[in-house]
């Protein structure tokens, strides 16, 4: 397998034939995906289709059983050695991870640190930023996400939406090449979803390259440059939001969208008329 093409159009992230197996369950069954500079790719799919597994494998949080992933053309997690591939030592994997930012469904902020330290610690200790510089940057990020008064709070003192905004600031603070979001709003109460999505939207406007796993269809339609539909560990359909939402080709995507539309209708019907 060769590294994806170089040159000006080389994708930031490139996934080739990625396979992941849990026991005898195939979670990823040969996934291909390219994400280009400044592009926002939204990953859709039913529960259990392998969306989380995909981003976790790309981020090297999960070992991979086949295929390969490249960041800026560099093979992730493995290196060539005497004509074989061999796993990279942990320190070099950590260095590759530093070029990617990850936002989890459950926020996973560090509860024993203040909000400020959550954001600055990795920037200082891992990326070697000067403490005052990291601090200035963190304050600026918190202001941009509307949390200027929360520097000294501990994560548990914040609402879910606020925690997730801090988690996004934390990931952005280290200037990643690409941001990976795994259902950033799924653990939130409905009224908190929008405040987080608007931060993600702002980030997209700054030209950040992003992969966003989400069930928020309106958001996907609005922000995505491309939508990827996954099912049973495979990419079933890729296209612009128009193509995917208005002219789905595969029956599985059609069924998925129908289910969603029905759920939406039920939700609208249940909501009190204003």
């Amino acid at each position: 397998m060769t590294a994806p093409g170089s040159g000006p159009a080389r994708p930031v992230l490139s996934v080739r034939g990625l396979r992941k197996v849990f026991g005898d369950h195939v979670a990823l069954d040969g996934v291909d995906l390219d994400v280009h500079e400044g592009e926002v790719v939204v990953v859709l799919g039913p529960s259990g289709s392998g969306k989380s597994t995909l981003v976790r494998c790309v981020h090297q949080l999960e070992s991979v059983d086949g295929g390969a992933a490249y960041l800026d053309g560099e093979l992730l997690g493995y290196e060539q050695h005497r004509g074989h591939l061999r796993p990279l030592p942990e320190a070099r994997v950590a260095r590759q991870r530093r070029r990617m930012g990850m936002v989890f469904q459950q926020f996973n902020l560090f509860p024993h640190w203040t909000v400020l330290r959550n954001i600055t610690e990795a920037a200082v200790k891992v990326h070697g930023q000067r403490p005052e510089e990291a601090r200035r940057r963190a304050v600026e990020l918190l202001e941009r996400t509307g949390l200027a008064d929360k520097h000294q709070a501990h994560p548990k003192q914040l609402s879910g939406g606020q925690q997730q905004r801090v988690a996004i600031a934390r990931a952005v603070a280290t200037d990643p090449r690409i941001m990976l979001f795994d259902e950033p709003t799924s653990a939130l109460d409905p009224e908190l979803v929008d405040e987080v999505l608007s931060v993600v939207r702002d980030l997209a406007r700054t030209g950040m390259t992003m992969v966003v796993v989400t069930h928020e269809m309106d958001f996907a339609r609005e922000v995505a440059d491309r939508c990827v539909f996954m099912d049973r560990g495979r990419v079933v359909e890729v296209g612009t939001p128009q193509e995917v939402f208005e002219a789905p080709r595969s029956p599985r995507l059609q069924a998925f969208l129908t289910r969603f539309a029905q759920r939406q209708q039920r939700a609208d019907a249940a909501a009190p008329a204003v």
Partner: peptide, 27 residues
């Protein structure tokens, strides 16, 4: 300690030792 904490520590680029002593052990 919630396994998500170790994931987050590694996702932030901490190596194994840093993740253990900075994030997992204090909790």
């Amino acid at each position: 300690v919630d396994p998500g904490q170790r994931d987050a520590a590694r996702a932030m680029g901490f190596n194994g030792r840093q993740a253990f002593f900075k994030v997992v052990l204090p909790q």
